[in-house]
Amino acid sequence: MGVMHVRARVTTHDVLWDKYRQAMGDIDLPRPFDEVALVARLAERRGRPIELIPVDALPNLPCGLLMVTDHADCIVYATDTSALHQRHILLHEAAHLVCGHDRVAPAPAKRPAADGDVPSGARTLLPHLPDALVRRVLGRTVYTEPQEQEAELLASLICSRAAREARTPPLAEGQQRRLGSMFGAAPAPRGRARG
């Protein structure tokens, strides 16, 4: 049973990195790592702006939110938390885009939305947006638990890789060739994320 669990985890890891590579192409993680720069690279690859909207955290509200509108993707994130937590929030919300969760159609409403159907937390968080837009945005950002787990895992993998790369200085091209020839291994293709 333990081997199957490890195999499933490795498979999930590989699937997530494949999604990351498809979304990001041959773009490496920024060095030194900067989550805002990574989000900007993702926006460039997607051909759509990703707006970062800092807010003060409020009780009983999520610390991050992805809103997909007709013109831009918006990541709302809490600013009154640690820098590490902010990084993870931004990466988690960006991971929803990488994984394609924004393209999943929301479940149809059982009845037409009434004016009072906007949750009070959303109204507090997004007071300047019309109710109809807030309902539409929230309808497109309610993710299933597996999607939340997938986004959380990908954000954690990116953070882990960024920390590992920060500890390991990059090898010059000549050093890579010499090491490869000593051990009989070809250097990794440039820009390819390794698991």
Rank of each mutant, 00 (worst) to 15 (best):
G64M: 03
R111P: 15
L133A: 06
V76S: 04
V10K: 02
A162G: 12
Y77N: 06
A122V: 14
R177E: 14
P119M: 00
P112M: 00
W17K: 03
G116Q: 11
D28H: 05
H13R: 14
L129Y: 01
R9P: 15
M24V: 09
V142F: 08
T11Q: 13
P170R: 03
A186T: 13
I75V: 13
L90Q: 00
A78I: 04
R135M: 01
P187N: 06
T79D: 05
I75D: 10
Q147E: 14
M67W: 03
N60P: 11
I53H: 06
E35G: 11
L16N: 02
I27S: 10
P62Y: 00
A95F: 05
A186F: 08
Q22N: 07
L84Q: 10
Q175G: 09
L66R: 08
F183N: 05
G2N: 11
P49R: 02
P146D: 00
H101W: 02
L157Y: 12
L179I: 15
R167L: 15
F33A: 13
S120D: 14
V6L: 12
P30G: 04
A113L: 12
E51C: 07
A83K: 07
A8G: 14
R41P: 14
R190Y: 06
P112W: 02
T11G: 12
L125A: 10
V36C: 14
A162Q: 10
E152K: 13
S156A: 04
I53F: 01
P146M: 03
R178L: 13
L91S: 07
R45E: 08
P108N: 09
A107T: 10
P32Y: 00
L157Q: 12
D115Q: 05
D28G: 08
R177C: 07
P119L: 03
L171W: 02
R31T: 08
R192N: 07
Q149T: 13
V39T: 12
I53T: 06
R192H: 05
L125Q: 12
V118Q: 04
V104M: 01
S82V: 01
H92D: 04
E148C: 08
V134P: 15
C63K: 14
V36L: 13
F183D: 13
V98C: 05
